[in-house]
Each structure stands twice: as structure tokens, then as C-alpha cells.
Amino acid sequence: MKILVCVTSVPDTTTKITFTDNNTKFNKAGVQFITGPYDDYALARAVELKEKLGGTVTVLNVGEADTEPVIRKCLAIGADDAIRVNADPTDAFFVAEQIAAIAKENKYDLILMGRESIDYNGGQVHGIVGELLGMPSISPVMQLDIDGDTARIVREIEGGKESLEAKLPLVLGCQEPIAEWKIPNMRGIMTARTKPLKVVEPTSKDTLTNVSGYELPAPRGNVKMIPADQVETLIQLLRTEAKVI
């Protein structure tokens, strides 16, 4: 079993978001970056499958050198080697192109990634990678088992679940509870130091989209307390001020 896990390097979930360059760029100053939480689940399942079925797990990140701590953590969790495509991940198509180029060279049985990154939340990369490679792409996958060349998959659908079977190779967008969350242990951290990390240049540097601006939600207003015996005032304010009824 040869598995490729694509990971993102995203701001920690508690980050206070600000922008620079006239609100066209995310301000990275002082921000702690982490592996995308959905990608973490994809990696955890890949490591579980490797332990059960044998094979290799390769981690792939499209990002600049500052993403290497995130890649190193993936190696500490159990990936065997890593590839970094040395480019700013500008948009979903660009990232998918890079992943597809690596996948064409190496012929993986499974290409796993998170259902979406938690920074720009596009949720498109797995679909585009599937299209570029001519293989099925399924998301969001919450359960994955492999039986020979067949994957048994459970994916979440609106209000329920869908069970599927599909032949390998596949591209899957993953989410919890596909695997148990893994935290690197001390031995993993030490062995990660000598695992190979290959840096490759992107297939192209064309920028297909440009961001015109970002906008944060308006700050939450103060809470207005209405005494319990003034129901009419409450209804009036819900109508005229909050405009929700």
C-alpha cells in the first residue's frame, strides 16, 4: 500500500486574524502554524493502514520553507518521507496541479487529504486532483477500510451517512472520526530528524486568481438585557433592531 497524504500548514485555531497590504494578505506575524486538523485525521488513518497492511506513507505539502515544522511533525507521527513543493499555495487549482504532478510520477494507491483546509476552506483540492488524475474523488470520508484493491468508505451526507465501495486508486477528502488523533511521541520526534524531506520546484508559477480583499465579520455588539416581565419590549427589539422576526 503506497499512500500519499497531502497536508496544509494553517494558522492555529485560536489565532486572531488580521490582514496587511490593504487587506489583501493574511498577516502571518506572530502566528503559530499547525497541520490542518482534517489533514491530521487523514495522516492518522494513513499511518494506521500502513501499520495494518504494510507499505509507505509519503507526506506532501505545497508551501514555502516556513511550513517545514508542520512537515516534520507529520514525519514524527509516522510518515516515512516527505515532499515539499516550494511555492506559495495561491489557490486550489494551483495546489491540485502540484499534487497531481507528484502523483503521476509516483503512482500511489491512495491519495488522502483533509476535507478542506481550515484557513481558506475551499474544499476543492481533492476534487480537482481526482479530475486531473482521472480517478474518483470522494469526500467527506469519515470511515475507511481497505480490502485488497477495494476501499470501503463511509461518507457524511446531509443528515446521514452513505456507505460506498470503490476500486483503488482513489483520492479521498477525510474528516473525523476516520482515525484516532495522533500526537507525536518522543521516539517519533527523534526518528523524524533523519527521515528524508525532498524539496521540489512547482510545475508552473502562473497565478490564476488574485485576491482583491478580505473582510472580517463585524464585531459582536453588546448584549442587551431585557427584564423577564417586559416581553413586549423584547418582541419589538427583535423586530426593529435585530430584525430576526
Binding site: 517545514e68 515544522p69 516534520r72 511533525k73 514525519l75 514524527a76 504532478a101 488523533w181 500526537i183 507525536p184 511521541n185 518522543m186 520526534i189 527523534m190 523524524a192 530528524r193 533523519t194 527521515k195 528524508p196 524531506l197 525532498k198 524539496v199 521540489v200 520546484e201 510545475t203
Partner: peptide, 26 residues
Amino acid sequence: MVSEIVENQVDTTQLIAQSVRELSER
């Protein structure tokens, strides 16, 4: 494609701190 192999010979203290912090928080 230009490629190079980079060995991860970096200070592991930061990764240890992150892992123990994650464990402690969870």
C-alpha cells in the same frame, strides 16, 4: 523539477514542546 534531499537535522525542542502542549491541552 529541481530536487534536493534535506535532512531534518534541526532542533527538536520546539516539536517536543508542541507535542507535549497538545497532549496537555487534550
